[in-house]
C-alpha cells in the first residue's frame, strides 16, 4: 500500500513538474507524509478516531515538510527564496499540492483498509455459518444412528427376564415401557413429526425402566406440561438430558437421588422453560463437557431460532438442573 501510494504520488506530480530537484522535494514530502500517516494511526490519543488523527496529522505535516525541503535546497538563499514573489507562489503551490494529494491518498488508503477489514469480517461470518451448518448436519447424522445404549438395553432385558421368571404382574407393564422406549429411540429421518408430549412419554418410559432396575437409588417425577400434545419438539432432546442425569448424577453415587422433569410457560413472553433436575452427584468444575450438550444446543437453535437457550444450574446441596428455554412460535 505504502509503495503504491508513493509511486502514484510521484507519477501524478511528475507529470506536472518534471524537474529533478522538485522530484527530490516531492519525494521527500511524500515520504514524510507516509510516515506521518502510519505514525498517526499508532500514536493517536484515545479520544480521536484513527481516520481523523491521520488526516489531521497529514494536513499539519505537509507545510512543515515543504518548508524543510525549501530550507535544505535553498540553504543561505532561504530568506530570499521566501521574499521573492515568484518562488513564494511556487512554494505555496507546492504546499497546496502536498496537502491535496496527502489527503487524497490518505482517504484512498483508509478506504482500502476498511474494505480489507470488511472482507475479513465477511470471511469470519462465513466461517461461523459453515461451522454451524456442519454441527447441525452432525446432529442430524447422530439422530439417524441408533441411540440405544447396549448396556442399558441388556440390563433392562435381564430385569424383564427376572420378572417373567418370577411370574411378577409387573412384567407386562415393564415390557410395554421398554417397547415405548425402543419405538421412540429408533432412528428417524426428521424431527418434524415429534411432539413434546411424545418426548415426555419417552422420558417417563425410560425413567420407569431405570426405577425398576435401581428402585432404592432412583426416584423421579415427570410433570405434565400444558399444550404439550401440539408442541413440536426435537426428538430425544429431553431424553438426552435425563440419560445424562442418570449416568453422571445417579449412577456414580451409592445413595442415588431423584430426577424431576417439568415445564412452565411464561404467559407474558410466550416462552416455555423445560427442566431436568437431579439431586445426584453434581458436576465437578473440571468435568469434561460431553458433545451431547453442545449438539443439543445447536439443535434447539435450529429448531426454535437463535433465542433458544440451554442453561445449566447447580442444585444445592448437590445435583444439576438443566433448563431449556425457547419460544415455540418462532420459525426455525
Amino acid at each position: 500500500m505504502g509503495f503504491a501510494l508513493l509511486l502514484s504520488w510521484f507519477l501524478s506530480v511528475m507529470s506536472r513538474t518534471p524537474y529533478p530537484d522538485v522530484f527530490g522535494r516531492i519525494g521527500f514530502i511524500a515520504l514524510v507524509l507516509l510516515l506521518t500517516y502510519s505514525a498517526a494511526g499508532k500514536l493517536k490519543p484515545r479520544w480521536l478516531s484513527a481516520g481523523a488523527a491521520r488526516l489531521g496529522a497529514v494536513i499539519l505535516m505537509a507545510p512543515v515538510a515543504a518548508l524543510v525541503t525549501a530550507l535544505v535546497t535553498q540553504r543561505g538563499n532561504f530568506v530570499a527564496y521566501l521574499a521573492k514573489t515568484e518562488t513564494l507562489v511556487g512554494h505555496v503551490f507546492l504546499v497546496v499540492l502536498s496537502v491535496i494529494f496527502g489527503v487524497l491518498f490518505s482517504l484512498v488508503a483508509m478506504r482500502n483498509e476498511r474494505k480489507g477489514r470488511e472482507r475479513a469480517d465477511r470471511l469470519q461470518i462465513e466461517l461461523e455459518k459453515n461451522n454451524l451448518e456442519r454441527e447441525l448436519l452432525d446432529a442430524r447424522l447422530r439422530l439417524l444412528q441408533a441411540q440405544i445404549e447396549p448396556h442399558f438395553l441388556f440390563n433392562t432385558l435381564a430385569n424383564v427376564e427376572a420378572l417373567v421368571a418370577a411370574g411378577s404382574p409387573n412384567a407386562g407393564p415393564v415390557l410395554r415401557h421398554l417397547i415405548a422406549y425402543l419405538r421412540a429411540a429408533m432412528p428417524r429421518l426428521s424431527d418434524n413429526d415429534a411432539t413434546l408430549d411424545a418426548e415426555l412419554q419417552l422420558v417417563r418410559a425410560y425413567l420407569e425402566l431405570m426405577h425398576l432396575r435401581i428402585p432404592d437409588r432412583l426416584q423421579f417425577t415427570v410433570t405434565p406440561v400444558p399444550n404439550a400434545a401440539t408442541l413440536r419438539f426435537p426428538a430425544m432432546a429431553l431424553l438426552t438430558l435425563v440419560e445424562n442425569a442418570v449416568r453422571h448424577g445417579i449412577d456414580p453415587g451409592m445413595e442415588g437421588g431423584r430426577i424431576d422433569v417439568g415445564g412452565q410457560w411464561d404467559d407474558a413472553s410466550g416462552r416455555l422453560t423445560l427442566w431436568v433436575s437431579d439431586t445426584g452427584a453434581g458436576m465437578s468444575e473440571t468435568a469434561q463437557p460431553g458433545t451431547g450438550l453442545t449438539n443439543l444446543r445447536s439443535r434447539l437453535k435450529a429448531f426454535y431460532g437463535p433465542t433458544a437457550r440451554l442453561d445449566l444450574h447447580d442444585v444445592t446441596p448437590h445435583g444439576v438442573r438443566v433448563e431449556l428455554n425457547f419460544l415455540p412460535g418462532e420459525p426455525p
Binding site: M283, E285, A287, Q288, L312, H313
Partner: peptide
C-alpha cells in the same frame, strides 16, 4: 474418563440460582 483436569465450568450466582457456565 479423560485424565485432563482443566477447569471446564464456572459456577456463578446469577439471580437466585447458580449457573454452570461452560
Amino acid at each position: 474418563v479423560r485424565p485432563q483436569q482443566w477447569l471446564q465450568w464456572i459456577k456463578a450466582s446469577v439471580g437466585n440460582s447458580v449457573r454452570l457456565i461452560p
